[in-house]
Design a protein around this nucleic acid. Structure first.
Lengths: 183, 183, 183, 183
DNA sequence: AATGAATGAGCATTCATTCAT
DNA sequence: TATGAATGAATGCTCATTCAT
């Protein structure tokens, strides 16, 4: 075994972990499976990440970051009211279009956070991106409702294995938004 | 070795599985942990449930049954439009009031279907209860939106550790419902 | 479960055992696998055959019987010398033509008998068929050599996964036979 | 827990596996039985040999090695024709003289290839030793016949529990060889 | 800093056999 | 007579983590 000078090994391990978790779920993530995927000796994963949870947190934080930056980029074009619904529906469309695997992984984060305190803060960041962008474009209660609705729609797509329906999503988001004006 | 005559052992194993999953999460559920909780030999769990998935399915189905019967009972008092929102919001209130642990467990089982195809059909039944009662009280698209919204709201309650807010839920459900008239 | 009147169940279990052993090898034979293949309750296999060895012996005896009767039928046409080589080579051809599965199973018997005394007598019967027919057609030493050669050729076919070559077999058998005249 | 520094553990596990297989047959070989025989923790056997087949392959290869080197050593003295028969018969005599247990073990491993594809290539090596030495001393078809005959003779010795008869073996090998000249 | 080796705990599953019905 | 239920033992295998080098 040649000891390579490999300054990005840590990053490569995280990438591999995301790939493994995407394919086999968080339950399929182990030091061994990650080491194999990263083509790195087993000891290397335990060296860079003392425990599995450490590795999990690093991987999920990176996954979140991708979502957050997507939100930031797209949010510039969002208006208020019906326009906002268009933007959000399109955003979910982009999210879903990246494939079931990534979406599944990010939702598993929710699930895992339910039981693993170490993941709670990471899970909390997931919504933060959208939350920030909604602030100023609608009232807080409506914002909360929008996020809940989007969550529920994503969940249904994943659990039923159906296709994401952007028109339907836009319609529902609009209903929640339009009435906010009347409050 | 005492060989007990125990005609309800199968049921006791399912009950134990629900208890274990409630306490330690699905990840903590194993033939061994269930056997210990049910005070039954290990072989007994594999005898009654060929695979762990079989046991999981039985447990999820039983958990669902409680929710389904709750829906059936309450649905009689539901009207249409705003009244329907009242009924649904109250229903979720009752569900949440039974305590966090039960709700968490049901959601964890529900979300586990994401990665375990064997659970998908059972997860689909979860919504069926509400779905049936909504039929006839609103159009199918609106019904789908209502279920998505309720799902999202429940998820938020569980993940943020906040309290269930019935008034807010009613408000959001109404927004989705009221506009359905205009379609 | 309907308790069928099924007077041939014992036989059906033996047939199923042969099928299972043919497909998965003797190591894959268990009360359960046989019961499933025979579409019979588990208890039925242990009822008719007290132990697994009992079932194994019954199954292998039946397999032998098939080979023995094949030999008896064909042996009528055998002559002496070169003619005998023709007959034996053709016999092996028929044997091999029944498919790898049956041949594998019968050879596994040899292997198993090496370690399981219960199977020794059954294994001994395997060669008896040919032995009898060779008596009178050649001297005992040559007979022994012929059987050894046939055994070795079969073994090579099975282990290398190659095709049975009747012409080559005939040639080799003839060499052993022709020289017997010179002794 | 004493963690021993034991650089030859892998080899000791293979040795133990051969001992176990010799005593209890391949069927009695398990990670546990080998670990016990090698006086090594269970995890050690699965660490060095990912699967039981891997261990089996290593054991078979080592068993073969003994035979192969025996062949290499003796082959120098072999001539052609009848002389070759002398050499081969003597070689089998030496092989058999090492005792029934070793021979039984080597044959059991060899025959196990029937059902375990992983062992097939290793089983093929078994003949390769002789095959190489025969090349140049006779034609390929005759060589194949010689190996088949030797295989069959060894099998008979083991299964009948009889003694190895070198004179008989020489006689039969000669018959196959002598006629090769006439082709 | 890096890693191969090591290890005890745990897992899902299969099994032969026994026994109450 | 049949058979579903039961059970303890065993199996192959994976794993997180530790440690000597």
């Amino acid at each position: 075994m040649v000891r390579r000078y490999d300054p990005e090994r840590r990053q490569r391990i995280v990438d591999a972990a995301l790939r493994v978790a995407g394919e086999k779920g968080i339950a399929g993530l182990s030091h061994r499976s990650v080491a194999a995927e990263a083509d790195v000796p087993l000891g290397s994963t335990t060296y860079h990440f003392k425990t599995l949870d450490d590795l999990l947190v690093a991987a999920l934080r990176q996954a979140n970051e991708g979502f957050a930056s997507l939100v930031r980029e797209r949010a510039e074009g969002w208006g208020v009211g019906a326009d906002l619904a268009d933007g959000l529906a399109a955003l979910l469309g982009e999210w879903a279009a990246r494939g079931r695997e990534g979406a599944e992984l990010e939702y598993e984060l929710y699930l895992a956070a339910l039981r693993r305190p170490a993941l709670r803060p990471v899970a909390a960041e997931w919504c933060a991106g959208i939350g920030e962008e909604l602030r100023g474009r609608t009232d807080p209660v409506t914002a909360r409702g929008l996020v809940a609705l989007m969550d529920g729609i994503c969940l249904q797509v994943l659990l039923t294995g159906g296709e994401y329906d952007e028109a339907y999503t836009r319609d529902m988001l609009r209903r929640v938004l339009v009435n906010s004006a009347a409050d």
